[in-house]
């Protein structure tokens, strides 16, 4: 079976639901366009303490998107950590960056949502369109869903301390940016 392009895992699907809910009252013509932007690498996403930023380039014009990403309250974080630890212990053989899908059900059971519903979503975009959320915000969320599909842990990380989209660094390697040129040859 070929995996879905957006929301191949329950973790990415949580974010696809957010976008899809814009079509609950009738078809949303922006969705195919937003998917096409995400598909064609038009969106560059970065995360920064409590919000997502994205540049969405359409026909050579850049649009700047900002989406609020409030961390879970402390008690939800504690509950989530407990559920994660239990699920990870029950599921060996997971690849790095993955989460067991059973955890998604555990979260729902405890009323924890990894995505953010459309009603609670605070976003802004510097485009002139009057439709909100605009196609750029939708494309950003589609892209986020793909990043989450690639690394389910990201879905949790975003709600714990949303500062990095990349996986944690490999302890066997030191990024050049972390090497101090002044002490390179010794102190």
């Amino acid at each position: 079976m070929i995996p879905a392009e957006f929301g191949a895992t329950p973790w990415g699907r949580a974010w696809v639901r957010t976008v899809a809910s814009t079509a609950s009252a009738g078809p949303n013509a922006l969705l195919p366009k937003a998917r096409s932007l995400a598909r064609n690498h038009a969106v560059t996403v970065t995360a920064d303490g409590g919000h997502l930023e994205a540049d969405v380039v359409v026909s050579g014009v850049g649009n700047h998107v900002r989406i609020e990403l409030p961390p879970w309250p402390a008690e939800t974080q504690a509950e989530a950590k407990r559920l994660i630890a239990k699920a990870m212990a029950d599921n060996s053989g997971l690849a790095p960056g993955d989460l067991p899908d059973t955890l998604d059900a555990d979260f729902r059971h405890h009323g924890i949502s990894v995505g953010i519903g459309l009603d609670d979503l605070v976003s802004e975009c510097n485009c002139r369109s009057r439709r909100r959320p605009c196609v750029h915000v939708l494309a950003t969320i589609y892209t986020l869903s793909q990043l989450v599909d690639e690394r389910p842990e990201l879905a949790i990380d975003l709600r714990m301390s949303p500062t990095e989209l990349a996986p944690p660094p490999d302890p066997n390697w030191v990024p050049l940016t972390d090497v101090d040129p002044a002490t390179f040859y010794g102190g």
């Binding site: 070929i2 995996p3 191949a8 895992t9 053989g93 997971l94 690849a95 993955d98 690639e150 690394r151």
Partner: peptide
């Protein structure tokens, strides 16, 4: 074994993207 996870998941996370 287990490094890349299950085959279905590997397709979702890596092959398709």
């Amino acid at each position: 074994p287990g490094l890349l996870g299950s085959r279905a998941r590997f397709r979702q996370r890596f092959v398709a993207p």
